[in-house]
């Protein structure tokens, strides 16, 4: 709020002070990836691209190249996000607008699920994947991530549908369109911004996901960047933070880019009581 009655300088100083640890971490997250500093010093003395060599060097025996892992992560995030969008788009509409049996019951279930801490079910889910033979596959992780993301997605989409005026649908019905046509041609375009936001949100959520791939697909072909980076950190006896940070920054870049692009749209969702 702009008000000339109060000066904002003291607040800026105070905020700058408490933000110092975070800002330090951000700055060095970037600086350390392109520079070297002598041992025992924080000030970088030379520029180098050495820490990024994992991008172009052949991996040593026993190590994995980052590219297939990146591809995995992308497939994981993109698939999860598209399924979440599709299913939420349908279920959200049904719950928001359609007469159907057990509607009250399903809505109550949705709210309960939305609040329910799904991570507590991971043991049972781990065993289900083992029984289904999907343990240690990317497909298994995708299915589980999608499932856990759905109550939230449906909830958000229902919220967007709720804001579409009923009269638009009534007009469509009067104009002779079936309920399906009304949904497809008239209502969907109205919730498109919400859909984009949900898609971006679930993409980011899957891209960042760590626990699920760690537990459900810990080794081999299903590896994603989060588990890749984590095992890198755990494996090394002498931590090479510069290299970790380079991999980390490589992993985080799409996130930061997407966040900056969709900032406004995302805020709607993050403010809407997501997992926190």
């Amino acid at each position: 709020m702009k008000s000339r009655n109060f000066s904002s300088l003291p607040i800026i100083i105070l905020l700058a002070l408490v933000s110092l640890p975070l800002v330090t971490m951000y700055v060095f997250l970037f600086v350390d990836t392109i520079s070297d500093a002598p041992a025992g010093s924080l000030i970088p003395t030379s520029f180098t691209l050495e820490h990024w060599r994992f991008l172009w060097e052949e991996p040593k025996v026993g190590e994995t190249s980052i590219w297939p892992v990146t591809l995995n992560t992308f497939i994981f995030a993109a698939t999860t996000s598209s399924i979440v969008m599709t299913v939420s788009l349908m279920a959200g509409y049904a719950l928001s607008r359609l007469n159907m049996p057990f509607r009250r019951f399903m809505l109550a279930g949705l709210i309960t699920l939305h609040a329910f801490p799904t991570i507590t079910l991971i043991i049972a889910i781990f065993l289900i994947l083992q029984l289904l033979g999907l343990y240690n596959t990317l497909l298994g992780v995708i299915i589980v991530k999608t499932a856990l993301e759905l109550p939230f997605g449906i909830w958000i989409m229902k919220g967007f549908y709720d804001t579409v005026p009923w009269e638009i649908e009534m007009a469509g019905v009067q104009d002779g369109a079936s309920r399906f046509t009304v949904w497809w041609k008239l209502v969907l375009p109205q919730v498109q911004p919400g859909l984009v936001a949900l898609g971006v949100f679930s993409f980011l959520s899957a891209w960042s996901e760590f626990i699920l791939p760690q537990v459900l697909s810990p080794s081999g072909s299903g590896q994603v960047l989060s588990t890749y980076l984590n095992s890198l950190i755990l494996d090394d006896t002498r931590p090479d933070f510069n290299m970790f940070k380079s991999v980390g920054l490589f992993y985080a870049m799409p996130v930061i880019f997407i966040y900056l692009t969709f900032q406004k749209k995302l805020m709607n969702i993050y403010g809407g009581g997501s997992k926190g």
Binding site: E167, Q174, G176
Partner: peptide
């Protein structure tokens, strides 16, 4: 008969034009 088959035109209070 469902609305679609009644051949009735309706003008709504807020006009309900399709915004897109």
């Amino acid at each position: 008969l469902p609305s679609q088959k009644r051949n009735v035109g309706v003008v709504f209070q807020n006009y309900a034009l399709y915004p897109h």
